[in-house]
Design a protein around this nucleic acid. Sequence first.
DNA 1: AATGAATGAGATTTCATTCAT
DNA 2: AATGAATGAAATCTCATTCAT
Lengths: 218, 218, 218, 218
Amino acid sequence: MSIPSHKSSAKKTRSVHAPQRSNGKLRVAAILEAAAAVIAEKGYEAATMAEIAARSGTQIGSLYRFFPNKQSLGDTIIVSARENLEVVFDNFDAGVKALSIRALADNLPALLLEQVFTKPALLKLLDASEDWSVKREEFRIAVVRRIAKTLTIYRSNLPKKSAEHIALVVLANTKAMVTHQKLPDFALRTLEEFRDMTRLYLQSRLGSSMSVKKDISS
Amino acid sequence: MSIPSHKSSAKKTRSVHAPQRSNGKLRVAAILEAAAAVIAEKGYEAATMAEIAARSGTQIGSLYRFFPNKQSLGDTIIVSARENLEVVFDNFDAGVKALSIRALADNLPALLLEQVFTKPALLKLLDASEDWSVKREEFRIAVVRRIAKTLTIYRSNLPKKSAEHIALVVLANTKAMVTHQKLPDFALRTLEEFRDMTRLYLQSRLGSSMSVKKDISS
Amino acid sequence: MSIPSHKSSAKKTRSVHAPQRSNGKLRVAAILEAAAAVIAEKGYEAATMAEIAARSGTQIGSLYRFFPNKQSLGDTIIVSARENLEVVFDNFDAGVKALSIRALADNLPALLLEQVFTKPALLKLLDASEDWSVKREEFRIAVVRRIAKTLTIYRSNLPKKSAEHIALVVLANTKAMVTHQKLPDFALRTLEEFRDMTRLYLQSRLGSSMSVKKDISS
Amino acid sequence: MSIPSHKSSAKKTRSVHAPQRSNGKLRVAAILEAAAAVIAEKGYEAATMAEIAARSGTQIGSLYRFFPNKQSLGDTIIVSARENLEVVFDNFDAGVKALSIRALADNLPALLLEQVFTKPALLKLLDASEDWSVKREEFRIAVVRRIAKTLTIYRSNLPKKSAEHIALVVLANTKAMVTHQKLPDFALRTLEEFRDMTRLYLQSRLGSSMSVKKDISS
DNA sequence: AATGAATGAGATTTCATTCAT
DNA sequence: AATGAATGAAATCTCATTCAT
């Protein structure tokens, strides 16, 4: 019959479930993971709080204790990606000076691809509706600034504005890679094209005329 | 009960509206314009049929006469962009052989930017969730193929696969330009960076070693 | 595309259509036929005025000239069935006295089946929602009275009340036949069962004990 | 826009309602009762979810918690009638062999009338349009089979096909009784007529020539 | 008189959020 | 604190009916 029978005997069956950890950290993590999964699948608007609660094994009421509304879930996903960004780049900066331009061109997108844009939900969120423009912008600016900072470490004489423009382009190329990676007819060569283009671009922007030639011919 | 009694207030509210455009074409155009605007602002999911109707000065019932459901609005925007694509490119192809690589690199994105990705709604739609994957993919493939065709006209010995990969990259660069053009802190130099990168890329892909040097130094 | 193109050039294309007979009789007949068809298919509530108009080759505006609202269509179908009823039974009455009870039991339902409950729409209407109770009742009473009248002609000493009760039963049996005739697993034997039952019943109600035996043993 | 602001008036309206029946069973029962009432009054199509909700003292959202769509309400009414059918007939079968044909003819319709076709809504549903044909057919077949089973218990040598045909007729007679019971000018004699007809019919189908005579003359 | 585009009330259904228990 | 049933605003879509042309 179409009447779910999970109502009358709710209290009895509750104890069957996994004991609810009241450990906030774990619970929040589980919720965020579920939210990311659902948003990745259906997009932010179509993701429902009920499904996120269910997938994370949380009751809807508890979900709202940790996240006062739907928007805050999205916010948190974006913010935590931003925090992660700092850690990841700080680490990368340590060895960046030793890299050839070519290696930089290869490793910078790889870093973003593998350590920052891990969750497809992040991209969905960043392309979501207008209400998000603020958070989205903040995130975009943060990423651009952080890439720019790394570039300035790499070339200490690089003007700040230039660094940011270059960073913007690197970010765009990385996003293109992420997007195409998920497409049905995705071919490895697609990634290579973007990688090569990034090499060419960074060599023209960061290289002396000599180093450019060397790098290309190698 | 089956005979609605909404006659009494009909006369009053009717006359409030602007004089009816009896021409269906105009009406459809107004609706599409409003739809594009609302979708651009809020995204496809958050755009409501009621608001689209209101903004186009159309009653909700009339809106549904022209577009039987919400999807059909999005479809029409995408399809008409695709139809436009063919016209615009056929025109472009006529003079393409005479262009330098550099000019090609400049004009191809400019063409897409100014004649195909006119409506921001189009981008929103192409990034929309789930159910749109089919229409979105169709459109993406159509654009890639069309660019590839032009590239093949430009370089008749270019392998089909290569043409498509290059087209993909050109499309990605153009999208990046479109996106950044709408950002609040947009600077012209952003466009220039992408344009330059596209030049470098196309020269490396389409140019002989000699022509590359000439083009760059010019 | 999803935009019907029958708007701008409406006037030109109009003349292509069959010349609109302004002959009221024919037009009304066409409308009623279409209405009966649509109602039979989808039921009264689900039948739309637009479809009835389309199927009868009438414009919706003209439809409303002849029938001021949806209900009036249903009314007319019922009323015309009632008018037809009189004609058909007057005819039948002429020869009814000559019939054996058995023949009467066979012919009375047959008459209703073949000449009155011709249109499935009539049954749909008679079972439709509460608002119809008045018209439905009127029709039911009219049929019962008319059958009763015939029975009184057949047996002039039959009390009026008895005649009506018998008529009611005959009508019910006929309805059962009509209903089962349309069922997917319909078998001829189903009709025979109801026919036999009607014979038994009428013999018990109209026959002397002698005639009953004769009829049964024959 | 995605955060509805319907909080302000919530408190006021909530307290108007009767104390919440926390027991789901009661709530579902109330809904089904209201649904049956509304459907009985207006028919399935014309019954609105809003009215069913209002009459059962349920909010529209809660109604949809229990019944995910309108059809499921109708389904449940039909299915529960079918479940009830089995119980009622199993009980009846226990003593059926001891009955005279006459008693069987009286008790079988009475059983259906009093224990199965309790809700007028059931009949409305069974006469509803189109999409219901499946559920309706399932129910009709279930009832016919169940009556046939009882008849086979009563007369073990009765061929299966015959049992089903007889069952069909008994069902039709019962339906006629149910229908007429609700009519404004209903008279007890109407029921008697159908009961007598059913007696005659069953005697002719189940009785040996001897037993028939005995039963009739008694 | 005829046309058919326009109207808009109202139906079904969803889901973020609240709050009694 | 935790639970999850309850809430009701709001979205999509339909269709009987009207009325300008």
